[in-house]
Nucleic acid binder design. Sequence first.
DNA 1: CGTCCCAATTGATCTGGGTCAAGGTTAGTC
DNA 2: GACTAACCTTGACCCAGATCAATTGGGACG
Lengths: 246, 246
Amino acid sequence: MSTPNITSVNCESCPIRHRAVCARCNADELVELDAIKYYRTYEAGQTVIWSGDLMGFVGSVVSGVATLTQTMEDGRTQMVGLLLPSDFVGRPGRDGAAYNVVATTDVVMCCFRKKPFEELMERTPHVAQRLLEMTLDELDAAREWMLVLGRKTAREKIASLLSIIVRRDASLASNGIGKNIVFDLPLTREAMADYLGLTLETVSRQMSALKRDDVIKLEGKRHITVPNMERLLSEAGDDGDGGFIG
Amino acid sequence: MSTPNITSVNCESCPIRHRAVCARCNADELVELDAIKYYRTYEAGQTVIWSGDLMGFVGSVVSGVATLTQTMEDGRTQMVGLLLPSDFVGRPGRDGAAYNVVATTDVVMCCFRKKPFEELMERTPHVAQRLLEMTLDELDAAREWMLVLGRKTAREKIASLLSIIVRRDASLASNGIGKNIVFDLPLTREAMADYLGLTLETVSRQMSALKRDDVIKLEGKRHITVPNMERLLSEAGDDGDGGFIG
DNA sequence: CGTCCCAATTGATCTGGGTCAAGGTTAGTC
DNA sequence: GACTAACCTTGACCCAGATCAATTGGGACG
């Protein structure tokens, strides 16, 4: 499909503009979408939106990694979503943000102003359908994650998280079976702990244990090699079908 | 709004037929929906659908309680959804069931054959929009539950579950602040444990502790009185805004 | 080339909830 | 009205992971 009016090559990974729309849109709809589209960048550590704040846009991650977190009054925090490129943020039909959204690396977002986006959605059924598909995928991912949080051991949790990151990292998709998989963790130990319902000390210990047992290789703190993906998956406790996306 | 063609008074709580459709449907659409609608009943304990099986329908719970569960090879199980009346089951656009669906009480479901339902959805945008809204609500609930699973103590988990059941039970909606809230638990201790990522012994101990501390009254094993809802909510760790629906 | 800072590691100890085991309750059923 | 089978409660003990406390490593910057 052709992609007219693209202002950034990175926008290839924007699901609304390209996965949802281009495949089924007519030219008028594309022009209309481009009219309400804009890009924003956030630095690593910057909060994109605070829980409860008014959220005037919806959009998707073009590059970088962001997280959705919930916090209790006493400071306990749980990550409830991991936003990788192509993931959608925001909630058509509701104004307040339900979670904190934080950039954990530098992030580029492709945003649509909410009001006109909602109006477009009313008129173009395939956009609502595409959003429904994406939301159902997210729901599956959240439910998969409930199993991880509720029933897995610390070691299994870490292995699950690493599997998920490998699975989602587009640059790793080309890796054949049996080949080394190499990637950089986009999360600190503390963020990993918040995702998994652990403490950062336990994350660190289990990372060391997986390294000691040759399930992974660690260079520096973030650079990881997985010599045997099957091994990692079996450490995660899900044999075969693997974990979903956060 | 008027409700023509209703074949059962229970179907009042069916969200597709009534919440999604009636409010915005024209007469033709209603007739078409009724043409592909049918009712099924399941006994307590019966499995509605096994994970991985072909699922030829979508639908919603009219009465009773069902659960969505995931199981690991070694038998560890995690409940990932609690289906109360009006909740939707099934996944338009995907054929395999992703979870086990089990009736925990006698259940009446209002079902739509999947293929014609999907075709209807293509033609009538407001049905897809309504499904999107419901799915986003479920996603919020799942994420709320991730906080419970990942960061709350056993006592807080139990209090959270009780809060959610109170919140969802339509018959309790009329209870004013300060009044006793009385209800029957629709779940066994084991099902509660599977929802909360605990063992049934821990559930039992914490129920006893909440009873001892006068947060709840227990008659028999299932009949519960909450003398002070604020107290229960604060035991759940969510002050004010409370938990969502599973 | 030091030194400052923050992320990560590692160790020692503690504890909430798991595990294993022994009753107790209640609702059917004959 | 005793028998059975679920379901639930309670107790004793144990261990995975939390907590508290140093220490290490590595990149940025003067």
